[in-house]
Amino acid sequence: MVPAARAALEALPASLSPQRRALLEHACTLVGHVPYFWGGKSAAPGWDPAWGELRQVTAPGCADSGKRLPYGLDCSGLVSWAAANTLEDSDALALVGDGVRAQYAASTPIDWSDLLPGDLLCFPDLSHIGLALTPAPDGTVPVLHCSRSLGGVVITADAAGAGFALAARPGWLPAS
């Protein structure tokens, strides 16, 4: 596990629910290891052997469409994969939602002051999604996400500074 992911897990509050902790543990295993792939989804338990294989991008709406790139996840695919592995259910998309807009719609909007690790963070236009981590002492909230511009699954130290503005609590996660 990369140092940033290990540090994120070590910073989780002791009182965090086991389900939230599991969600972030699963997601942290991918930091620095899974590339961004427009339209990339997986509900495979554990590591998906398809990650890293060259595949043609077929999802519309991206400059990468038609290119052959290493397979990975997109931002909502990361959330779906982590949820499916946490819930131990490859059919978790029915609860979690498929795509940023569906994931946000399946959640309850909350104030940033109410964020818990594992809550969702989104861009205001719902074009990008990630998972909140434990706020830093200075109040910034780190976010775990799969970023096209950053090349894959990463942790960004300041979610608000990176453009995340909406927060939501997934209905399938406990409120603690």
Rank of each mutant, 00 (worst) to 15 (best):
K41M: 12
A105T: 13
E88D: 15
T58A: 15
A8M: 09
V153S: 08
V153F: 09
H145Y: 06
T108P: 00
S15V: 03
V2F: 08
K67I: 05
K67R: 15
C122N: 06
A82Y: 08
S147G: 01
G152M: 11
W172A: 12
A43T: 15
A165D: 10
S113V: 09
A7W: 03
K41D: 14
A50I: 04
V154E: 02
D138A: 03
Q56I: 12
A92L: 07
S42F: 08
P49R: 01
L16P: 11
V153Q: 10
D98Q: 11
Y104G: 03
A83P: 04
S80R: 14
L121E: 07
L23H: 06
S113Y: 01
V153A: 10
D111L: 13
S17L: 05
T58D: 12
T134F: 06
W51K: 07
P18I: 03
A83Q: 07
G171D: 14
L54T: 10
A132C: 10
R20G: 07
V57L: 14
G66W: 08
A160M: 08
H26A: 13
W51M: 08
A11I: 02
S80P: 00
E10T: 11
A27M: 04
P60M: 08
A11N: 03
L173A: 10
R101T: 12
G39N: 03
A165L: 13
L144Y: 08
K67T: 12
R101P: 00
C75R: 01
G32Y: 02
G118F: 04
C28A: 15
A50E: 15
D91K: 13
A4C: 07
Q56N: 07
S149I: 01
C28Q: 02
S17N: 06
H128V: 00
A5Y: 08
T29M: 06
T108D: 14
A8W: 07
S107Y: 11
D138Q: 01
E53T: 14
A94C: 04
R169F: 06
R6F: 07
V100W: 02
A175W: 02
A105G: 13
R68H: 14
D48C: 07
G161P: 09
G152N: 11
T29F: 00
S90T: 15
G32N: 05
C75S: 07
A5L: 09
R68Y: 12
H26G: 10
L69V: 15
G130T: 02
S107I: 11
L30N: 01
G66L: 06
